[in-house]
């Protein structure tokens, strides 16, 4: 179990780095899929089975296909992206490293956190999640459907050809 955790963590971090540093956008998408699959593996290790399945379906199945579709539709896979200047890149790396440092310093007391409730490893199962979602969080659930509808309408409106212009 411990070995699996460190293996999945290493895969996630390395593929996340490859997303940032790989040349062509298609390679970035492939590495992002690998990263998301390893995060789904982490969910399974945490016994959050519902989230693992939803994560694979939504991210790897839907969102990444959308990315690939847009890249191929717009023919973006030419790596002729004009790169940022050396100074900007070094600044970006330094800023990211500083953020990492500050966050590590801010959370160094995470070792001291005590569990609030007695351990119950069944909370990630579909039954428990469904009970909580449809009892305690029914209104936010319905509101999120409104958010989805508005996002869909917005995407269609943005993607439509401007008839006045052409």
């Amino acid at each position: 179990m411990t070995f699996l955790f460190y293996l999945l963590a290493a895969v996630a971090i390395l593929s996340a780095l490859m997303v940032v540093f790989s040349r062509s956008p298609i390679n970035s998408v492939i590495f992002l899929i690998i990263c998301f699959l390893s995060i789904a593996g982490h969910y399974i290790l945490l016994n959050a089975q519902f989230l693992a399945v939803v994560h694979i379906i939504v991210y790897t199945g839907a969102i990444m296909v959308l990315f690939l579709f847009v890249i191929m539709l717009l023919n973006l896979n030419t790596s002729n992206e004009p790169h940022k200047s050396q100074l900007t890149r070094i600044t970006a790396v330094i800023t990211g490293g500083l953020l990492l440092l500050v966050l590590i310093a801010a959370t160094k007391d995470a070792v001291l956190i005590q569990a609030k409730n007695p351990a119950d490893y069944n909370i990630g199962l579909v039954k428990q999640i469904g009970q909580t979602l449809f009892k305690q969080f029914l209104l936010p659930f319905e509101i999120s459907s409104v958010l989805f509808i508005s996002a869909m309408v917005g995407a269609v409106m943005l993607g439509k050809k401007d008839s006045k212009k052409n």
Binding site: V54, Y59, I63, F67, I123, G124, I129, L147, F148, A155
Partner: peptide
């Protein structure tokens, strides 16, 4: 959420996924 045995955190993850999907579409 698993550490504290509180399913609320996983519901939040579910909602973040909803927002992420909408954000990616737009």
């Amino acid at each position: 959420s698993v550490y504290h045995s509180d399913p609320t955190g996983q519901i939040f993850v579910f909602f973040i996924m909803v927002v992420a999907a909408a954000e990616v579409a737009v």
